[in-house]
């Protein structure tokens, strides 16, 4: 059992304050949804948690159990058990998924084990094996990119995964497969999932235990799964008025 605890997280990019004191706490096996309109800073939250160097952290803390993640470079956060599934994964020409996974998993794992895990994961989410050889995210469709991210999640088995807008660019079948795989990871190895989205359709497969409303750089309200439905009906106007 692990916990991910975010307290008073403040960050800026390009001279603009985006995160203005985020508090969020979650445990292994839980699914937390962070919902907010476009431009509210949701993706910034994802990048700051994962340790992107272009974002300047102004204050606060992010602890994975006893470990302060804000002190660590991105790769050490990942090795500590944090994973970011990106909304727009970066193209890395000439580097295949296989090359990446061979060095991203601890070197004690042997190549054949990783190979087997990759093939198994590809099968689970209906991802062609040809993609294992192709350059990362180069000439992939939106759906293929999300499957690519999900496959990595399956092989790397993180303790907590931040899933940023997994529903964008996905058709219905692909969304169902990918969100079912994330849901399964929360059961099979007790992964915690922080699901960032502005639509609730992802929740058909991936049921949130907790829903956070994110607006104006902080969490405005926290509730159960029914809060997602309420947002679907009424939108974010209420918070926009409060912040306006």
């Amino acid at each position: 059992m692990s916990t991910l605890v975010i307290e008073g997280l403040r960050a800026r990019v390009g001279g603009q304050d985006i995160l203005k004191g985020v508090d969020l706490s979650m445990a292994s096996g839980e699914v937390h949804a962070v919902m907010g309109p476009n431009g509210s800073g949701k993706s910034t939250l994802a990048y700051v948690l994962a340790g992107h160097p272009n974002f300047e952290v102004l204050g606060g803390s992010v602890r994975l159990d006893d470990l302060e993640l804000l002190d660590l470079p991105a790769w050490e956060r990942a090795q500590a058990g944090l994973f970011l599934a990106m909304q727009y994964p970066t193209e890395v020409p000439g580097v295949a998924l296989r090359d990446l996974l061979r060095v991203s998993v601890s070197t004690s794992n042997d190549a054949s084990e990783i190979e087997a895990a990759m093939r198994q994961e590809a099968k689970r989410i209906g991802f062609g094996e040809k993609f294992l050889e192709r350059s990362l995210n180069v000439d992939l469709s939106g759906g293929e990119m999300k499957r690519n991210e999900t496959l990595q999640l399956g092989v790397l088995r993180p303790r907590f995964a931040i899933i940023d807008e997994i529903d964008s660019g996905l058709d219905f079948d692909a969304l169902r497969m990918v969100s079912a795989r994330v849901e399964a990871a929360t059961k099979e190895h007790n992964m915690g999932a922080l699901v960032i989205t502005h639509y609730s359709r992802v929740f058909e497969q991936l049921k949130p235990d907790t829903v956070h409303v994110f607006y104006g750089g902080r969490i405005q309200q926290t509730g159960g799964a029914d809060l997602a439905q309420e947002l679907e009906d009424t939108g974010y106007r209420r918070w926009s008025n409060e912040n306006g």
């Binding site: 992107h52 790769w75 991203s104």
Partner: peptide, 12 residues
């Protein structure tokens, strides 16, 4: 930087 971050965010 983005390519570097992408790989690092997977523990490389």
């Amino acid at each position: 930087t983005e390519q570097q971050f992408y790989l690092e965010s997977r523990g490389v």
